[in-house]
Write a protein that binds this DNA or RNA. Structure first.
Length: 271
DNA sequence: ATGCGGACCTGTTAGC
DNA sequence: TGCTAACAGGTCCGCA
């Protein structure tokens, strides 16, 4: 579910409610996530204040004086702020209750998400250390994509969705960026020119920035920290638009599977 | 090193 | 209406 814009929307939404606030109690109803929620988490954060919340790729990092809690939302996860007590539902796996009375609730029906703890530098955690550059930073450029793609036979779409190349680009925004750049998703990554990678790099940034500005994309169940949907769905040019008219040329949008993911494109606009 | 398929899990929808 | 199969925003791991 959540890609970078949805995670960033979550981060900015919860920050004002939890920054500087002390955790009063942690309730883990079901710790069986992608990885088990570590037993020491409760002990490590109870009574401690959240010093900062940052994001690396699709991971949220809650900084405490003694270490960091890493939260990934997987495919179906969400974090919501509750200002009054609300009965926990089936997939509400964890609550972080603050001394202020505010509750941060983690919900994740598919349990692909994770809640982890690291006592050291979070960037050095094994899951974060290998991540490629942030797409919205300066490191991601056409030149970078061009260099990293040389010698690769895989499709350009799988290439930009590889978190070791660039982190945070999931299926929706990979489709959208390739459309914006006019590049066919099946093209071999290693054969695309530098000029076209310049376009693609810029398109990735632009699509993600616009989506962040709209509060992310809600297809079915993404909600921000206040329980509201994101509005980028109305801006989607190709994703989930199979058979509908291309916004540029009116030809029907095509869909096919690529690397086990649905891939949407316009065969006239993307070469 | 690269690249692919399978795995994790639940809910919803499409198709027979 | 009911059963089954396919699919869903992610990504790690093991194998070729």
């Amino acid at each position: 579910m959540p890609e970078l814009p949805e995670v960033e929307t979550t981060r900015t939404g919860i920050a004002p409610h939890v920054l500087g606030e002390k955790i009063y109690k942690v309730i883990v109803r079901d710790g069986r996530l992608r990885w088990p929620v570590p037993k020491e988490l409760k002990r490590n954060i109870t009574g401690r204040a959240v010093r900062d919340i940052s994001r690396r790729g699709k991971y949220l990092i809650f900084h405490f004086d003694n270490g960091s809690m890493l939260v990934h939302l997987g495919m179906s996860g969400s974090l919501r702020i509750l200002t009054a007590k609300v009965k926990a539902e089936k997939h509400d796996h964890a609550d972080f209750i603050f001394e202020s009375g505010c509750i941060l609730r983690f919900r994740d029906p598919r349990r692909f998400g994770s809640i982890l703890w690291t006592g050291g530098d979070p960037e050095q955690h094994s899951l974060l250390a290998a991540l490629g550059p942030e797409p919205l930073g300066d490191e991601l450029s056409g030149d970078y994509l061009f260099r990293r793609s040389r010698g690769r036979a895989q499709s350009v779409k799988t290439f930009i969705m590889d978190s070791r190349i660039v982190t945070g680009v999931g299926n929706i925004y990979a489709n959208e960026a390739l459309f914006a750049a006019g590049i066919h998703p099946r093209n071999q990554a290693g054969k695309i020119s530098k000029a076209r990678y310049e376009k693609l790099g810029a398109a990735i940034k632009e699509v993600l920035e616009k989506a962040v500005a709209k509060g992310g994309t809600t297809l079915r169940d993404f909600v921000n920290s206040a329980g509201e949907p994101g509005y980028f769905r109305h801006e989607l040019q190709v994703y989930a638009r199979a058979g509908q008219a291309c916004v540029q040329c009116r030809a029907p949008i095509k869909v096919q599977r690529l690397g086990q993911r649905s891939t949407f494109y316009c065969s006239r606009c993307q070469k």
